[in-house]
Computed example of a mutant assay.
Amino acid sequence: MKSLLGKFLPIVLILTLVLSACGQKNNTNDTGTDNGNNEGVKKLKVGMVTDLGSVNDKSFNQSAWEALQQLNKDYGFEVKYLEPKTDADVMPNLLQFVKGGYDLTWATAFTLADAITQLAKENPDAKFGIVDSDIVVPNVAAVSFKEQEGAFLVGVIAGLTTKTNKIGFVGGMEIPVIKRFEAGFREGIKAVNPDAKLIVNYTGLFNRVDMGKSAASTIYNDGADIIFHAAGLTGNGVFNEAKERNSKGGKVWVIGVDKDQSLTFGDDVTLTSMIKKVDEAVYQVSKDLAEGNFPGGKVTLMGLKENGVDIAPTSKKNVAPEVLEKVEEYRQKIINGEIVVPEK
């Protein structure tokens, strides 16, 4: 008996290892997380080119990149980003994904619209996505937001919270998308506090933290106690200036943008944030392509009604309950069409 066990045991072990290996091979087909809902979703290679800011801007670009990372986790998408440092880098960065055989190439800024339009026409078999643009090209899925509607709501908050009746706005470049932020914010303030003064400062760039800090310093020195920024990485400087002032005994606020920026900069300085759901848009359009439903040749427009913009859920930490009630009142008026927020 001992002799027979000695002969057959190695064979049993080998068979066990072979069966085990076969089972493992089936589990490695999906490089993402197998959530049981992957049927019909093709794994894609998706690239993303940012604006001249950083992918870690705590704002717009980061939100888009987090969407692609989630697609990697959920469905095994292969994802990559490139950060152009100058305008001259934009086209080579986009071409790197096109020539690399990526299924979809995202551009996360209005400023990249001309480059995307040119490349899309030159490469009709390639697929592109662009945020903050209304270009209509057959192989481009464009996503645009009604920033003015979300900005109106934080304008209501600012107008009812300010103690000095002076409120600031720091913008990046004076382009249509940022002007929509400014217009909505101005109208929201005016609706609840017509006596408040809005002080506006455009830095001209989205990637200069030092310029954001300087702009904020000027506005706070003029007596403002709240600043809303729509300036990407530059806006981080607004938070830096506010934190510095508060550490010296002052009390000023910043209204964040795109993401819930209280999660990065803290509740002590973030009054609220205007959420712009870039992540959801990038995620959904990319997934649509994987499912064979790419929305090329049209513009997807997202406002309050479409749940594309909002205020941060953490707003209740610093915003008075009665102010939030007023926000909800105006939200419904905008959704119902009783109020049409101007874009400029």
Rank of each mutant, 00 (worst) to 15 (best):
S59H: 03
E338Y: 09
L324P: 02
V278W: 03
K43R: 14
K259P: 00
F206L: 12
V55I: 15
E329D: 14
D57I: 07
N318I: 06
V285S: 03
S315D: 03
I199E: 07
D222S: 14
N336K: 15
L104C: 01
T164L: 10
V327S: 09
V143T: 11
V136K: 15
L301R: 07
S54Y: 12
W65K: 02
T164A: 07
A115I: 08
N293E: 04
V18P: 03
T161L: 06
F185C: 03
S133H: 08
F145T: 07
D34T: 09
E182L: 14
N61G: 05
G6T: 13
I219G: 05
T270P: 06
F206D: 04
K166N: 12
K99Q: 14
N35C: 11
L160Q: 13
S315K: 07
S214Y: 01
K58D: 07
K163V: 09
G155I: 11
K190I: 02
A67M: 10
G150K: 01
V285D: 08
G155W: 05
E83K: 12
A107L: 12
I226F: 10
G296E: 04
F169G: 11
G53R: 04
K316D: 12
A126T: 08
V282Q: 09
Y75W: 09
E83I: 09
K190N: 13
F8E: 00
Q332S: 13
V49P: 02
E291K: 14
V131G: 00
I157D: 12
N38Q: 13
T270M: 04
E122L: 13
F265P: 03
D87Y: 13
A224Y: 08
L263H: 02
E149N: 05
L104P: 02
N38C: 07
K213L: 06
S247A: 15
E328K: 14
D310Y: 01
T264G: 07
T272Q: 03
L68I: 08
V309T: 10
Q62K: 01
T218G: 01
F228I: 05
N336D: 15
D258S: 06
T117C: 00
A115P: 00
A183L: 10
G256R: 05
K326H: 10
T300E: 07
L13W: 04
I157W: 06
K305I: 06
F60H: 04
T117I: 08
N221Q: 15
V46E: 05
L205M: 06
T203R: 04
V154I: 15
G232R: 02
N246Y: 10
K42V: 11
Q24S: 12
A230D: 07
K2P: 00
K287W: 03
S262H: 02
G297P: 04
A115M: 11
E147G: 13
A141P: 02
G171P: 01
G235K: 02
T50C: 04
D195K: 15
T162W: 11
S3V: 14
G297L: 12
A64F: 12
D310F: 01
V55C: 05
N38R: 13
K317Q: 09
